[in-house]
Each structure stands twice: as C-alpha cells, then as structure tokens.
Simulated scan of single mutants.
Amino acid sequence: MGLTVGFSKLVLGVYGFTLITGLPANILAFYTFLQKIRKRSTPMDVLLFSLTISDLIFLLFLPFRMVEVANMKWTMPYFLCPLSGFIFYSVIANSVLHLTAISVERYLGVAFPIKYKLKRNPRSAIIACVIFSMMSMAHCSIIYFMQYHNYFNPNITDPSKRNTCYEEFTHEQLDILLPFRVELSVVFFLIPFLICCFCYIQCIRILSRLSNVNAKKRYRAMGMALGTLLVFVICFMPFNISHLEGFIRGNSSEWRHPALLTSTLNACLDPFIFYFSSSAVRETFKNVLRGLARRLLLPCCHSALYCSLFNRGKPEERTQSTDDSIR
C-alpha cells in the first residue's frame, strides 16, 4: 500500500473513528426507518433507509481495510481483496446517488408542495434505489477486471502472490483505468454535485421567502441543505479531484489515499443528514441520549445522596465526634 508508519496510524485513527461513531448511529437510524416503513412510508423514508443500509455494509467491510493498513500490506486471503474494494467503492458511489435523490425530493417538496404530495409514491423511490445500486456495482466491477487483467499471462505476477491490493498496475491497465476514473468522477460526483447545488440553493431561496413556515423547520431544512453540500465538498470532492490529477499525470495520484480518507468519513456524517431529514430519527436519538444520561447520572446521584446522608449523621454521632476532636 506504500504507507509510512505515521500515515498508517492516521488512517487507522480515521477508520476507527468512523467505525466507532458511524456504526451505532446508523444502527439507530436503521431501526427507526424500519419501524417507520412498516407503518407508513414516504419516498424520503425509503431513500434514507436505503442509504442507511449502504452505510452499514460499508462499515461492516471497513475492518478489512483496517487490517491491511495495520499490517501495511495485504495479508488476508486474496479473494477478499477485490471483494472489499468492490464494496468500498460501490458504497461511496451509491451514497452520492442517494444524497442527490434526497436533494431532488426535498426540492420538489418545497417548490411544488401540493402537486408533489399528490403524486409522490414510495415505489418510485424503491425503483430509484435499485437503479442506484446497480449503477454503482456495474461501474465498480472494474476492480475485478483490473485485479485479474491478463491473469493467465506468464510474464505478469500472479495477483494472489502480491502483498498489495488494487495498487500495482501495468501501463496497459492504466490506459484503461485512468480514463474510467474520470468517467466515474463525472457520473458519481460532478453531475450529482451540480444537481444538489441547484436543488438546495433553490430550497434555501424559497424557504427564506416564506414567512408562514415555522422558523425551526425552516432553519432545520437549511441546515440539512448546507450539511449535504458540505458532505459533497469535504468527503467526495478531494477523491474525485485526485482522479482528474492522475489522468493528467498519466499515473495514479500520489495523494489518492489521503483523499480517500475524507470519503470514509461520509459513513459517520450521514446520520446528521438523517437527523435533519426525519423527525422519527430525531426522536430516537433524543430518547437514546436521555437514556444514556439517566444511566450515567443515576449512580452519581445515588452516590452524592449517600455521601450527604453519611456526612450528616445522627445528632448523637455528631456530638460524640465533636467531643472526641476536642479531647
């Protein structure tokens, strides 16, 4: 993987933080959306539920990459190499498409509230989610093609005998891979980002003019819009710029791995979007936080009460202790 010890520790730190924070938050969101969809679902619920599943799959496969980074080389069975890479990059692409669809759904709901409410159907969201998954997996299947390209060529080292994963490419492979990465950047970043910018800028413009809308709801919608755009800029933009830079240089970008770190953070930032998007998620998060606070504070309260009673003591004990101290 070509990592230094210092950068390896940084990567492990980012991956560990993403796993520790993202897993419980996404599990709570998954439970919330599952309960809501069982009762009565909207297109937004379906999109957020599908995005939650995508993030959970990403987080479950993240330990494979953590093992690789910790050892600074690929030591696991080789069939896991293309599989983990395929899942890793497919989920990132899938998340971008889901966030874009959420922005479109928000814009339609704000710009055409009556017409859209009459026509919206959860089935259309389900179909969209299936299409997003198929698109992401179809594009990222190039990982398998690159890993086993010229597999039977005796002049090329057997991929399973290498200690790297999706790192070493021949000039022939790069001639295929580099233009394809640019296409990925256009389809899974540039176009979605422009759509999100249009939708959320329009949402903010419309909401800022509506005086009859509850201020809290208006600010929450604006917060979601700005949060999603920040996720695009922070999480997805650096990695996709590295694709363009690598295409211009004619080789894989040297800062591709540092840029990929920010994409990893998307799995723990998505729950914030869920928080702004769904009242059910907000209620679940609040209930969990209240429960945790109660469990943490209750022993402290009991301890403080016990100490207070112990120090107060009985009148005779206080008198006796005072006499003893005088003596």
Rank of each mutant, 00 (worst) to 15 (best):
Y219H: 10
R220L: 07
M222H: 08
G223L: 06
M224H: 07
A225K: 05
L226D: 03
T228R: 01
V231W: 00
V231N: 07
F232P: 00
V233A: 11
C235K: 06
M237F: 15
M237W: 07
P238K: 00
P238Y: 00
H243F: 15
E245H: 14
E245D: 14
E245M: 14
G246M: 09
G246K: 14
F247D: 13
F247A: 13
I248T: 05
I248L: 04
I248C: 02
G250I: 09
G250Q: 08
N251H: 13
N251G: 06
S252E: 12
S253A: 13
S253Q: 13
R256F: 10
L260W: 03
S263I: 09
A267C: 09
A267V: 07
C268P: 00
L269S: 02
D270C: 12
D270I: 15
D270Q: 14
P271L: 08
F272Y: 09
Y275F: 09
S277R: 09
S277L: 13
S277N: 14
S279V: 07
S279Q: 06
V281L: 00
R282W: 13
F285Q: 05
N287M: 04
V288A: 10
L289S: 09
G291S: 01
L292W: 07
A293K: 05
A293F: 04
R294K: 11
L296Q: 00
C301K: 15
C301I: 09
